[in-house]
């Protein structure tokens, strides 16, 4: 009692050793590469389409009234349940993972960016209009800079769900990738490997998050830190 069973939890030293071996034997690289690629693709496609749709719906009230409830309804579908469907549609290859990741990121970015576009202060828009700004200038000089904090928040949460979508996709059915590695190790009762794979995912997460935070620091210098 009071002792942690290494069968279930492994030992930190064993995990570190396994982690190093994974790299020195180059065994992890194909998995890492595929997962990273699918994550970044999902992130890119999901955030750009979420951003574009949010922008369009923000501009056209009619589309907004029609589509926003539909998008919200679709958002309610558990993405996890869609995984097997996507694998059926796109096969066991990387496409199904990218798609799952894309869908997940899309919603996250859509809701954030939409909030951002709706939050633009009309008084600031008027002030540049009065200075002679055309529609395009209003968008580039007010709408986007004003929504940027929201968009970056969307990107930040997007990073998390992009990786999640990819891993879940790989877990459901794949031959390669970190999700596949975890599943395989789990089936083999190789707890150490499960944890070293999780460590690898955590590091990817930290790495991607650092990039977004760097962007945030550069782009949002004008914001006051309230806490």
């Amino acid at each position: 009692m009071g002792r942690i069973d290494p069968f279930f939890f492994s030992r930190p030293s064993a995990i570190i050793v396994d982690f190093v071996v994974l790299f020195s034997s180059k065994e992890i690289f194909p998995h890492l590469g595929v997962t990273l690629y699918a994550t970044l693709m999902g992130l890119f496609l999901g955030s750009s389409s979420g951003l574009v749709l949010a922008f369009i719906l923000g501009r056209f009230q009619f589309l907004e009234r029609v589509l926003d409830p539909i998008i919200f309804g679709l958002y309610g579908i558990p993405k996890l349940a869609l995984g097997p469907l996507f694998i059926l549609w796109f096969g066991l290859g990387i496409e199904s993972k990218i798609f799952l990741s894309f869908i997940w990121v899309f919603f996250v970015m859509y809701f954030n960016a939409y909030g951002g576009f709706k939050d633009v202060d009309y008084r600031l828009v008027n002030s540049v209009r009065l200075m002679g700004a055309n529609e395009f200038q209003v968008i580039t000089k007010v709408v986007f800079p004003s929504s940027l904090p929201w968009i970056l928040t969307g990107l930040k949460s997007g990073v998390g769900v992009a990786l999640l979508g990819t891993i879940v996709g790989e877990y459901i059915g794949s031959s390669v990738g970190l999700g596949n590695m975890v599943m395989y190790a789990g089936n083999m009762f190789n707890t150490t490997r499960v944890f070293s794979s999780i460590l690898a995912m955590t590091l990817i997460m930290i790495f991607l998050n650092e990039i977004v935070e760097f962007l945030e620091k550069r782009l949002l210098r004008w914001r006051v830190k309230s806490f």
């Binding site: 008084r123 600031l124 008027n126 002030s127 540049v128 009065l130 200075m131 002679g132 700004a133 200038q137 000089k141 007010v142 800079p145 004003s146 940027l148 949002l220 004008w222 914001r223």
Partner: peptide, 26 residues
């Protein structure tokens, strides 16, 4: 017409010089 409105109209993400120059920029 130049309109100094009742509300603050400086863009929070622009520093002073770029705020003052915005009309010329446009």
């Amino acid at each position: 017409i130049g309109y100094v409105s009742q509300a603050d109209s400086l863009l929070p993400w622009r520093n002073l010089i770029d705020n003052v120059a915005i009309g010329l920029e446009i």
